[in-house]
Computed example of a mutant assay.
Amino acid sequence: MSDQLKISAEKRTEFGKGAARRIRRADKIPAVLYGHGTDPIHVTLPGHETLLALRASNAVLTLNVEGDEHLALAKDVQRDPIKRVIEHVDLVIVRRGEKVVVDVPVHVEGEAGPETVVTVDHATLSVEAEALHIPETFVVSVEGAEAGTQILAGQVELPSGVTLVTDAEALVVNVTQAISEEALEAELAEAEAEAGIEHEESDAAAEGAEGEAAEGEAAEADAEEKTEEA
Rank of each mutant, 00 (worst) to 15 (best):
A204I: 11
A147E: 11
E69P: 07
S202T: 15
I41C: 04
N64E: 13
K99Y: 09
V85P: 00
I23P: 05
V101Y: 05
T176G: 07
E228Q: 15
E220L: 06
L171G: 04
S126A: 12
D222M: 10
T38G: 07
I29E: 03
E111W: 10
A221L: 14
D27L: 13
L63E: 01
G208S: 09
R22K: 15
A26E: 15
G211I: 10
L71P: 03
E146R: 15
T163K: 11
T50W: 02
L51E: 14
E111H: 13
E217A: 15
E198K: 11
A72D: 02
R24Y: 06
L52F: 11
F15K: 07
A56T: 13
E187S: 06
T149E: 08
V156K: 02
A20P: 05
R79Q: 06
L188N: 05
S180V: 03
A221H: 09
R21W: 00
H88S: 09
A218I: 12
A213K: 10
A191I: 13
A53R: 04
G18Y: 05
L164P: 06
V142H: 03
V139S: 05
T149V: 13
V173L: 05
E212L: 11
V165M: 02
T149Q: 09
V140G: 04
T166H: 05
G18H: 09
G161M: 00
E207Y: 06
P105E: 07
H36D: 10
T166F: 02
P40V: 07
L61I: 11
A218F: 06
A209Q: 13
E190R: 15
L51N: 04
A214P: 02
P114V: 04
E109T: 15
G154K: 01
E69T: 14
D222C: 01
A230R: 14
Q150H: 12
A186R: 15
T176E: 15
M1A: 13
I134G: 06
K75I: 08
T116P: 01
L132A: 13
P114D: 03
A213S: 12
E146N: 09
V104K: 02
R84F: 09
L152Q: 03
L171C: 06
H70S: 03
I197W: 11
E200R: 14
A59K: 02
E182I: 09
E225C: 00
E136P: 00
G18D: 14
A20F: 03
D76V: 15
P30K: 04
G67P: 03
